[in-house]
């Protein structure tokens, strides 16, 4: 028996909007620790890892570990029917072939039940080692989204380079080149406007902008994004999900052959 009640149901709507275009089908894993998902995009170039810790739910009942295969587009369709302020409860019986999403309006005067068929998904779970990164950049998520969008009008790839001068995003395409440098800036009025660069060593990596742009669909979740980089390793783009967890996007870099 599974019953997860999330008062901030809007968070789940935003989570689905953030990942549904990158991943078609995925297993949601439910354990006493929380509600999680790990899935790769169809090209196996990007991986998304979601964690919503059990403490973040108002009520969290998960009698035994359960893996539920869902089509994320269909799940997003159902969650779109919830109001942004609705309380969302996810319910499933052990061995059931469906999951129920219950939406309660804040004033409790409207209760909706949406039942969605589950599916069998054969997916391998990858071990992601804890890594020390050469550079970690924390910046406003809207700024990062703007940079990715702007650069993708010029080129297909972004070179991200972190030095003590700052973080540089650059691209080149048929019509020319573009380069945007963001410097560390902690003297802002609001902490969410800060850009913080922690650098152990300078690092330069090349990524496909198509994926970066897809990751920025998570922007409504968090005012800040964290980009963690090490040479020749996947870059990690992380958005916090309120106080309860995170969405991490891992993107394999483009490497010299």
């Amino acid at each position: 028996m599974l019953e997860l009640r999330l008062v901030q149901g809007g968070l789940l709507k935003k989570v689905l909007e953030a990942i549904k275009d990158l991943v078609n089908d995925a297993n949601f894993d439910c354990s006493p620790a929380g509600f999680s998902l790990q899935a790769m995009d169809s090209s196996h170039v990007a991986l998304v890892a979601l964690l919503l810790r059990s403490e973040g739910f108002e009520h969290y009942r998960c009698d035994r570990n359960l893996s539920m295969g869902m089509n994320l587009n269909n799940m997003a369709k159902m969650l779109k029917c919830a109001g942004n302020d609705d309380i969302v409860t996810i319910k499933a019986d052990d061995g059931a072939d469906s999951v129920t999403f219950m939406f309660e309006s804040p004033t409790q005067d409207k209760i909706s039940d949406f039942e969605m068929k589950l599916m069998d998904i054969d997916s391998e779970h990858l071990g992601i080692p804890e890594a020390e990164f050469q550079a970690i950049v924390r910046m406003p998520s809207a700024e990062f989204a703007r940079i990715c969008k702007d650069l993708s009008t010029i080129g297909d790839t972004v070179v991200i380079s972190v030095t003590k001068e700052g973080v540089k995003f650059s691209t080149r395409g048929d019509i020319g080149t573009a380069s945007i440098v963001c410097r560390q800036n902690t003297t802002v009025d609001k902490p969410e406007e800060a850009t913080v660069i922690e650098m152990e060593e300078p690092v330069t990596l090349t990524f496909a902008l198509r994926y970066m742009n897809s990751f920025t669909k998570a922007t409504p979740l968090a005012s800040q994004v964290t980009i963690s980089l090490s040479s020749d390793l996947p870059g990690v783009v992380e958005y916090k999900v309120a106080e309860m967890g995170y969405i991490r996007f891992y993107l394999a870099p483009k490497l010299e052959e």
Binding site: M40, L233, Y250, K254, E256, E257
Partner: peptide, 14 residues
């Protein structure tokens, strides 16, 4: 010339 790496190159099945 750079080519697109895949995730499996870095993370193995657990």
């Amino acid at each position: 010339l750079k080519s697109q790496a895949r995730i499996a190159r870095f993370f193995r099945a657990s």
